[in-house]
Design a binder for these strands. Sequence first.
DNA 1: GAATCATAAC
DNA 2: GAATCATAAC
Lengths: 275, 275
Amino acid sequence: MAEPPTTKTKNSTFSTAALAAKKQTAFDSMMNASKRKDLTAESPQPRKKSTYQVSWRKLLGDAIDHPERDSRVFYYDDDFSFVYDKYPKASVHFLLLPRDKKLSMAHPLEALKDPIFLAKVRVAAAKLKASAAKELQRRFAKFSKQEKRRLDILNGVLELDDDEGLPGSRDWEKGIRVGVHTHPSMEHMHIHVISKDMFSGYLKHRKHYNSFHSRFFVNLEEFPLGEDGENKRKREIWHWPDVDMICWRCGKNFKNKFTQLKIHLDEEFDEWKAE
Amino acid sequence: MAEPPTTKTKNSTFSTAALAAKKQTAFDSMMNASKRKDLTAESPQPRKKSTYQVSWRKLLGDAIDHPERDSRVFYYDDDFSFVYDKYPKASVHFLLLPRDKKLSMAHPLEALKDPIFLAKVRVAAAKLKASAAKELQRRFAKFSKQEKRRLDILNGVLELDDDEGLPGSRDWEKGIRVGVHTHPSMEHMHIHVISKDMFSGYLKHRKHYNSFHSRFFVNLEEFPLGEDGENKRKREIWHWPDVDMICWRCGKNFKNKFTQLKIHLDEEFDEWKAE
DNA sequence: GAATCATAAC
DNA sequence: GAATCATAAC
Ligand SMILES: [Zn+2]
Ligand SMILES: [Zn+2]
Ligand SMILES: [Zn+2]
Ligand SMILES: [Zn+2]
């Protein structure tokens, strides 16, 4: 089964930074920066429209075509790859990728209309969700009030009362969301499995936040949407990305104030871990 | 004397976030975001040039005029205010503000030509630097190899050898830089007292980094620059802000790759604390 | 998808 | 000084 990552917990907002850095190609041997400035100083010209053909949309292809040699993949079988998001937008952020070529190329809102496929995705997603919850527990149980008595007993600091069983763990799965984006950017279908906290150095602007905490995000439980549901959803995000940012935990509306939201998320993160 | 701040150390890149948030005025009651979009959708017009008269340049005025009621001030006397930078660009970031009206309005490169004033600034800066070093020690000694034996003895984990004195502390002042910007933005003269790490959620772009780790930053020890030195300095930053970012610790050149530098600073921060 | 740079408005 | 938004180029 999928094991949660064993990334060393450190005082960092870029927890998978090392991985990202390792996979990064060397710096482009671009023109010297000051020379660039000189050239444009007197005759500023708009850069020409790019003819770059978007290969970044296919960046998830390797994870399903060659999972055995893709370091982002931490588990796979014939049907699915379990993947670390390279730019995690929360403390835990995994992707579930269907490996079937045809399904993988379909739009998630279309593919998940098929009840057979939906059922298979739900089974796999439940596994990945459990894995994500386990990772939250591994990293944050030590801050959690609900885990305290259990941990104290396990560590021999406290003793069980007579007839007392070992206390249960906090339900970390409640801290995990599972779903898809209404309009994904990368073309291989992917289901996000992400913790609610949105505490990450990779969360850098409004779209990042609202991709997961607005109507742009469709929970797997909501499927099948039905035609009416789907149309309603698209109306709801008509003004995307110009939609307010709402705190996932307390509901406070931050309008378009992303930096204020970031500071608030930082505080909510600590309180949430402490629950 | 100036005492270091007692901010609770937590897993946060916005350590003075609470302060910043508290001082922030309520959100502007601006037009609804979606309405804005509608208005500009068919006839996009550039926003009019602002007539806003820059009061933000005077934002440090209160710290020297009314230090007793400015929460950023943590120590002051007749000559200087010691201040927390509201947007710290490193784990410790203080400002030293001369309170004399005339000196405060002068350009630092001009004012520090006066040997009397320079000497007074150096005395005050030494105090603030010591305070900053003490704060580094308070927060990071527990990660430091150089502090380990000392702390183990203080905590009773180890015992002193015969004739052994208590081991000295790490020299945390080596981790502090003191100096001014060649072209400050805020008009009240301020001397930066800042740890080298540049680990901060408020460090967001190249100018932030290079303001402290390029020739744009003039160390207090370098004064007096002399006319030649000053002119040379200005030539060296002619291409500002288009100058390469160089890691403060290992000297690696990150060119204009700010995000890569951020990830690297994160790693250097851990290694530096562990020294 | 990420990232650098530029631009208002404050 | 900070912050939102837009724009290339990849
Ligand atoms: Zn996506
Ligand atoms: Zn909240
Ligand atoms: Zn300044
Ligand atoms: Zn380095």
